[in-house]
Design a protein around this nucleic acid. Sequence first.
DNA 1: AGCACGCCGACT
DNA 2: GTCGGCGTGCTC
Length: 802
Amino acid sequence: MIAEVIVDVPAKQTDRPFDYVIPQSLETVIQIGMRVVVPFGPRKIQGFVIGIKPHSTLNKLKEIIEPLDLTPVLSESLISLGNWLSEETLSYRISAYQAMLPAALKAKYQKKLLVPKENKPLLPQTLQSLFANQESIMWEEAKETGYLSLLQQEVTKGHIQIIYEVKDKIKKKKRLAIRSALSIEDLKTYQSTLTQRAQKQHDVINYFIEHNDWIFLTDLTATLQISNAVVKELVKKEVLEESEREIYRDPYANRYFKRTEPLQLTNEQQEAIDPIHDRIAKSMHEVFLLYGVTGSGKTEVYLQSIQKVLERGQEAICLVPEIALTPQMVHRFKGRFGNQVAVMHSGLSAGEKYDEWRKVQRGEVKVVVGARSAVFAPFENLGLIIIDEEHETSYKQEENPKYHSKDVAIKRGKQGSFPIILGSATPSLESFARAKKGVYTLLSLPKRMNNQDLPHVDIVDMREELRSGNRSMFSSSLLEKLQVRIERKQQTVLFLNKRGYSSFVMCRDCGYVVNCPNCDISLTYHRHQQQMKCHYCGFEDHVPTVCPECQSDHIRYFGTGTQKVEEELHKVLPEARVIRMDVDTTSKKGSHERLLNEFQKGHADILLGTQMIAKGLDFPNITLVGVLSADTMLHLPDFRSSEKTFQLLTQVSGRAGRHQLPGEVVIQTYSPEHYSIQLAAEQNYDQFYEREMMIRKGLKYSPFYFITLITVSHEQLMKALDVTEKITTFLTSRLTKSAVCLGPVASPIPRINNRYRYQCLIKYKREPELNQSLKQILDQYQQEVTSTSLKISVDVNPFILM
DNA sequence: AGCACGCCGACT
DNA sequence: GTCGGCGTGCTC
């Protein structure tokens, strides 16, 4: 039999199946969807079997070397989903497949030089020492020795072999388990032969007389207070037997989740859930947009919809934006569905992710709660996919394949004939527009569950503060309110919007800004390491003490980091206990959750943080939310910046007063008159929607037009510009009259890592030929992409236009 | 992506 | 005359 294999070589020319003979011995083993090792040129690489057929049109085929899996890692439905994905996003099939699987399943390759024992004496003296203690050395090591040409000569002579290895990254976690190898009768007989001195052995035998089952060695030694030696001795005597048992790394082991029961739904919730339950019961595909204000009880709707799906023997996926809200979300899901839940998010180690994925694959769980890529969870009988906070940008992957989870979910929903729920308090304009058009079904939860009023919002004009002599980052109004909370022992969340506004170093005399030498972007000041770093290419430099331009020593860092805010807070409110949450304090595993726990327990008065605290916080004692600088992302070169500002402010404001105590919100801004800030303060989504839609219509942006962004980069500015120009011309000729093709324009970041970047932006209503044209472009420049440093990136429906 | 094959400049 | 530079094209 012949296997069709997609090989792990992400390139245009290899983006097609290659045929391999399945050796006789593997005929019953190899199945569609398995990973295999295949010879490819002189190398050995990994590939996915995507088809098995009796004959091939080619005659001299190579054989599959070995399978990497016992059972397929991709089902046929996932393979076809992968094919669709690569088609939609114009990415390689291998990239699409890999994106659907945990990273642990991606192979690692090793190249080695091997000298068979008998050849050792044949090597020249200089090389002998290299192989004195070992048969083989790594290629990388060999390169460092500087004897590469000498080594290559020996390779041609046949004294040294080059071998390629495919290393499976997976390490299944294993522990040693022990059980009795004898019957209870025989155990007793054996026990009677033991001498008086062998008390420990006696105990062990006793244990196994009582428990006729496997036990982990570590548990056994702990319970009986004995050493490994005692057990090993009995294993050697064949009284006991041992076996490696695979165990899951359970990131939520030893954690107790209080079991919860379905809550009584409000009338509104009931009205929202009825149509969902109806489609689940009828196995009908439909996309619901669940538009519910913060605190309106969307999660309970999710939980009870999942409940319904489980009752029908189906499975469900619930996507959540990122680690940010998972601790609380996980609690609610594990509380309701116990160990039927697997969790997949970026906070887990590769091994943990792999184990969670395997629980799904083996059918040991029925529900997955996870971030973007969890939409590919390998369920075979899905009944529902929920996307919570559907407007979140983290659902869009910025690397190839540049997919959006929402599109994947809807595709799976159509294929499997089941409903999709998109939930948000601030739906993306795209989704809301579709709901209004009737493409999605709108379900509204306009009231908070406890009928608690939305918090009162105060907009503070920071220019005014400045004029009245307050140069600190806290307005007098915010400071006053902070003091009141501390007196009343209530809690405050302070939110620092840092997106697109990192701390940079500028000379106060001449205005010189420290830029990256490789990228056209300012370097970011990293306080704890006392260094300047580039977020795009990784360049690092010392912090300058004098201005390189004018030699002035008035060179300072600008921008407000959380650390700086913390310091300031300490000065003005020395008695306040502050917990700071940002990339620095949460980088360690589990620290995110730990900090939140501490705050929840009341160990601090103020929680200070960035984006990551904007979502999911739901603590009863929070009565004040302060946004230190609301407009930092308002001025980004992005047509969605107003929408994002509105969503973020609404989201943050929703953190206050979710329970009995009423909440208050202070928004500090330099542009208080801006509609997205004004309307966020009123929590007026509908008016924001109307207003923003007008603007989008005028500018021909989404949701009125689809957008595709092509970014061309090259070491030479002229080359990048030239290619972009040609692409733009070509596309313009291929597009219909209703489409707009803008370009070539320099990218908002015109240079990254010494590569110049130009782009072409296409806005269109309906272009059935566009995909074909884009493919043609990629084909056209294929040679230049492989031979020169030209790169062409296509992003269909981009989220950020960088 | 790698890697081999193949054609032109500076070296023993 | 050879070693080694990297342009071109292939990998079942």
